[in-house]
């Protein structure tokens, strides 16, 4: 992304941002506020369209090819997992249906990933597993907890990782 910014009603919610992440690289960036960090994460995976500047996800423009971008980027929201997903199987089935994945192989892959996330609370482990089910090239994390950084980074190894943070200390744990 080059000079990608997000404005609403004339107010700059995300200041112009330039970054390039290659395969296997990792960038953790701290922002001035939690809201700015949340919007920047959504912009990076094509969930929010940049108001100005250019942004490409593996060569695809989120404004013109949003579905292609969303197949390449996995997104882990900051918000906690809804209580409706009372079982791992139910959650994986939901995510697999949205990404058109085979339910049985998605569940097997999900269980393998979950086993590697031992010690990570399910509220944080499930969304990461869900984001990795479709084997994305880019993983975008919105304000992830610093406490689980080592386990979560180990599971996501090999792909480009972009995490947004509301404090420099949190960003340092993910850098």
């Amino acid at each position: 992304m080059r000079d990608a910014a997000f404005t609403r009603d004339g107010a700059a919610l995300v200041a112009p941002m330039t970054l390039e992440i290659g395969e296997g690289e990792r960038i953790a960036r701290a922002f001035g506020s939690a809201r700015e960090a949340a919007i920047a994460a959504l912009m990076a995976c094509g969930g929010v369209k940049a108001s100005s500047g250019t942004l490409f996800v593996d060569g695809f423009d989120p404004k013109l090819q949003p579905t292609q971008c969303k197949r390449i980027a996995g997104y882990v929201p900051h918000e906690l997992l809804p209580l409706e997903f009372d079982s791992f199987e139910r959650y994986v089935d939901y995510r697999a249906a949205l990404w058109s994945l085979d339910p049985a192989s998605a569940l097997a892959r999900g269980r393998r990933l979950l086993a590697k996330l031992e010690g990570v609370h399910e509220s944080f482990a499930y969304p990461l597993v869900g984001a990795l089910l479709a084997d994305p090239k880019l993983l975008v994390l919105d304000r992830p907890l610093a406490a689980f950084a080592p386990q979560m980074l180990a599971v996501a190894r090999g792909r480009a990782i972009f995490s947004t943070h509301a404090s420099i200390e949190d960003a340092a744990a993910w850098a």
């Binding site: 995976c45 969930g47 579905t67 292609q68 969303k70 929201p77 918000e79 939901y94 949205l98 058109s100």
Partner: peptide
């Protein structure tokens, strides 16, 4: 909110 975000980030 999370359901919204997951569905919006799905292809």
């Amino acid at each position: 909110r999370q359901l919204d975000l997951i569905e919006q980030s799905a292809p």
